[in-house]
Amino acid sequence: MGKMRDKLKQYLKPGYYEKYDYHWGMTIDLDRCTGCEACVVACQAENNLPIVGEKRFKERREIKWLRVERYWEGEYPNIKLRFIPMLCQHCDQAPCETPCPVAATYHNQDGLNTQIYNRCIGTRTCAVYCPYEVRYFNWFTYKWDEPLEQQLNPDVTVREKGVMEKCTFCIQRIRQAKDHAKDDGRRRVRDGEVTPACVQSCPTKAMVFGDLNDPNSRVSKMYKNPRGYKVLEELNTLPKIVYLKKADSDV
């Protein structure tokens, strides 16, 4: 009975997301980012993202779970180029999760914002509700020409038309790391054991990924960096990616 009461209390109150097993987070140091887009390519290769072609790209129907946004600042000749890699922020209060009528997107036990492709019916409401525009819809069923289908990642599904998809923080790698930890008889994954494709491929090591529940992890330490900020924090979506501000030498 007491257990029931505890459970009910838990169900009636939000905030359970703070008690997840893991709380995966990321920091991106914009001072180190050169905008080389290696992360974009790595993501494309890892997650079986379709190459949509020039025509579809012009129609803005490309699928890039991670994109590098470019912003120009100032007028020529005092012009500056800013980069900001934009990917799913895995918000703790994700505005995209509530409106899905079939619960195809929800928060899993790791505090990740997940997308269940099989369950998606394609209302695209999540994409409307997402302020970061990081949800990508499969407008068509895309094909991989021979022999390109050989390079598809067997750990990741290939999505069909009418399905929404987005960055998963390479959930297949997290899964794998957890399995390894279990095989080794460890309770938890060690820091640095999981690296999403983008983090792995970053030549300047601008991205750091890890467990926020572990106070000694690299990402937890980077989180406390005074340069850190979150994108569109004022919307109270509680995003889990912290960007470290570019330190301008000429300010």
């Binding site: 009528p101 079939v102 998606c120 019916i121 209302t123 399905v163 929404m164």
Partner: peptide, 24 residues
């Protein structure tokens, strides 16, 4: 997008044991 699965948005018992999200 996938109209052939529209019945998933209706609360009918199914073999997956999944129900629609009434918060939406």
């Amino acid at each position: 997008g996938r109209v052939w699965f529209v019945h998933w948005s209706v609360p009918v018992p199914n073999q997956m044991g999944l129900w629609p999200n009434f918060r939406s």
